[in-house]
């Protein structure tokens, strides 16, 4: 999914490779790129499940406007992954509903429908 070369933009100027944790598994991406870009490159499409209908959501506007791509990042829910830079050792989790009642809790128990597991890459 990553563009290694481009007829107009040429080769991308990337940051250093960093590892991060996504839903318990290790992944890598480039430092400073949006978290959503690293996830997209790894084939992850689902960022969260909505609270009421448990419907999947992913990147929608990619400019920090719509909040569809929010996830739990380093224990903090509702982080807009399309505009939040990736850093070494980040812990990124699929968000369920509002991301738990308080800061620091990652997953709400009601979302245990198994679909998120299918999305892990």
């Amino acid at each position: 999914m990553r563009l290694t070369d481009h007829p107009i933009l040429g080769r991308p100027d990337r940051g250093r490779v960093v590892t991060f944790n996504f839903d318990g598994g290790e992944m890598s991406g480039f430092e400073g790129e949006p978290i959503a870009a690293a996830l997209r490159a790894a084939g992850v499409a689902v960022h969260r499940y909505t609270k009421k209908h448990r419907a999947p959501r992913g990147v929608f506007c990619a400019i920090g406007r719509c909040t569809d791509c929010v996830m739990v990042v380093d224990g903090r829910p509702n982080v807009r992954t399309c505009v939040t830079p990736l850093a070494e050792g980040m812990c990124v989790k699929t968000q369920y509903g509002a991301g738990g009642g308080e800061l620091g809790s990652s997953a709400a128990p009601e979302a245990a429908d198994g679909r998120a597991t299918d999305e892990k890459v």
């Binding site: 933009l9 959503a36 870009a37 997209r40 990619a62 400019i63 399309c82």
Partner: peptide, 15 residues
């Protein structure tokens, strides 16, 4: 996604 989102992904994020 929005067409602009796709543009951001490929031309800025290079994905």
């Amino acid at each position: 996604m929005g067409a602009g989102a796709a543009q951001t992904m490929m031309n800025i994020n290079r994905v």
